[in-house]
Amino acid sequence: MADASRQRQRDVAVLGGAETEIVPEDLRSIPEMVLEAVAGALDDAAVQWEDVDAIVTASVDLFDGLTASSIAVTEVVGAVLKPETRIAADGMAAAIHAVHQIAAGAYGTVLVVAHGKASMAPHWDLTEWAMDPVYLQPLGVDFLTVAGLQANLIADSNRVGRCASLGDGACAVVLSSSVPSGAAVITGTGHDLDAHYPGDRDLSTWSGLQRAAGRAYEQAGVRDPATAFAVAEPSCMFPHEEGLFVEATAIGKNTPLSPSGGLMEGTAPIVSGLTRLLAAARAIEGNPGRRALAHGAWGPAGQGHAVAIVEAT
């Protein structure tokens, strides 16, 4: 797979970002909520609407109760008569796609937006509709039950009840090929989708994250993950996932996890990974040479993973 002659991806700056406060129910409409994050991100990044060449959004139709749900936010993400690409996965996957767009030379500055409202429907019930409809869905299997299986396998089962509280939120991040001095830059990315059926996976590990992190390390030139990072910002929805994260990324026991607080106090579906990218960039900004690892996950028990390495300049 790896080709030695392959060009190194160009560095992409995290110019700025913003997120809404995660609340159990945000009474604003989806576009009103998203506008707060987008306006905040443009302000934080010190860019104007016209500076944005393209937009990548992340959302899932069934979670939003809308078909092509990014249509709901066209105007508030500034996508009218601009390129907009919509990824149906965690916001970190959308950020990685924006990095690829910039690295390919297609666009200079890309706005990445993720939004989700857990209040609109019982979230875990909806995830049943993301399980294979032949063998798993008829049994009532959803993301929560697969996470429970995983927790029982590797940890004290009574901890399963402690799940990150799900609410409503939006996050927006501005990425750019022009790197202001002192900016945090993304030097490596990787994503991965593991097998769907719990029986086809080794649920005692996050092997998909291991592959995703490996791809990111290769691009970023990270040789010793145990000492490489000043901070790691994982997307862990359950306590048992922290151990899986540390093992799969090989960041060791000394790398601080989620000094910003992490997801346990509240997060929104689809939004989590993008908030981790923002937290990781903020944690190292102004400390040249420092690296941080940001992580997003989606699907049952971490079937999908996305990783970005952020480095301060």
Binding site: T85, A88, A89, W129, A130, D132
Partner: peptide, 27 residues
């Protein structure tokens, strides 16, 4: 099809298991 995130289930049809995979949905 009345599904959510179907690629989680169907990506193995595209030999996607263990690879970087995501889905675009823009009508």
């Amino acid at each position: 099809e009345g599904r959510a995130l179907p690629e989680l289930w169907v990506a193995e049809g595209a030999y996607g298991t263990g690879k970087p995979v995501f889905k675009i949905a823009t009508g």
